[in-house]
Design a protein around this nucleic acid. Structure first.
Lengths: 216, 216
DNA sequence: TTGCAGCGTGAATCATCGTTCACTCGTTCG
DNA sequence: CGAACGAGTGAACGATGATTCACGCTGCAA
């Protein structure tokens, strides 16, 4: 029974899978989803195209893991920021600001994973991410409504709308890319302010809700 | 000098070009941009693939004309609705509500032309459309700010954000599709309300701003 | 040291589509 | 009524990119 899974072998395999995923992520962050091609990823990871298929059964699976990883990281950060906030409204504000700030910090990657045009097969996975983002917001919006912190409104429309607004207002090709850190911060604050006001918070800025955010 | 452009010939050519464009639009409205393929469009128009190239130099040009046609129609409707309104705020409300209502009425086509993932070459044209939408809104937002109808805010972020919010909140795959006319109207009103509040209008509903819209 | 499991390889293959082109045939003009 | 023009055709081509596979090589096991 030769070639048992030694420590060494296992580690090597895991490292290589990690390297492939990292290569794919880097390429996505540099050139968008369109640039994530098997040969390119393999080359970046220092292996041949065929080798990649020893680790991922198909390109779709590779992309799925990539999206899942990024989404998981972002969703946790967002949830953590929300949970750390003192009340429903500041939780919402923290979620929105955190998501915005982190997305803006890795703008290209965020856009690749969230909104950039790709083929349909790949798109299905990103849908989950947007769905989860919207779900997280929707839950917090509903909580705030129940606690009378927000006026009654259709959270099912509002949550996706906020996701879309942040995507298009901060990440998409229409958005002006902030040149420096201060500009980015200002954009995040503007976006947060817009989102909170949309939900019916009239004096978000005065309450100091827009300043919160957790950076990567 | 044979084969001069007779009335008949000219009309025939124009009709055929129109038919091709109509076929492409229908296919886009049914199956999204991905389904707009040369052979499929040609078949739907009742001609051969090669014939299509007598009318459009490339697929990109075909898509460009398709997007331009739809965009022009929608932008005019939006501008008209805005111009007919009595003041800057109701103009904004009318623009947003009109766009939303018309987009929702042809949801699949609107999404295909505005947001649906496709390849990069095609995407450039849709960018113009989103750009124009944002520009129209931005101008009206600035007017309203100058007239002190809105608080000071960064219109360059707000306008794309609203476009994104409407796209994602009403058209995108996350949005629940309204089953009936009343549901659609409610969704449009919710979206309009959110957008106006985001801009700083605190009592949009009370002022009756959200009821306006011009249907197709 | 030797045998062999299984990783690594990368050229070949397959699939998808946009685009072309040599040819047919209906229409127009003299 | 022909001759010529040019619309129409659709199979073939080309480009791109994912996926496969037969073979070489590495490094565990005995």
């Amino acid at each position: 029974m030769p070639y048992r899974r030694t420590e060494n072998v296992v580690r090597h395999l895991a490292e290589r899978e990690e390297a492939i995923l990292a290569a794919a992520t880097t390429i996505a962050a540099e050139g968008g989803m369109g640039a994530v091609q098997i040969v390119a990823v393999a080359a970046r990871a220092g292996i041949a195209a065929g080798t990649l298929y020893r680790y991922f059964p198909s390109k779709s699976d590779l992309i799925a893991e990539l999206v899942t990883a990024v989404a998981g990281r972002e969703l946790s950060a967002m949830a953590a920021a929300g949970d750390a906030a003192p009340g429903p409204l500041s939780a919402l504000a923290a979620c929105i600001a955190t998501f915005s700030a982190r997305a803006l910090a890795e703008r290209r990657l965020a856009w690749a994973v969230l909104g950039e045009p790709v083929d349909a097969q790949v798109d299905a996975m990103r849908l989950d991410f947007r769905q989860s983002l919207a779900a997280e917001l929707e839950a917090r919006i509903k909580t705030a409504i129940e606690g009378r912190h927000l006026p009654d409104l259709d959270a099912g429309v509002a949550a996706p709308a906020i996701v879309g607004a942040l995507m298009e207002g901060l990440l998409g090709p229409l958005a002006a890319s902030p040149s420096d850190d201060a500009g980015a911060r200002a954009a995040v604050q503007t976006a947060t302010l817009l989102a909170l006001r949309a939900l019916g918070v009239v004096d978000a800025r005065a309450r100091g809700l827009v300043a919160q955010c957790v950076l990567p």
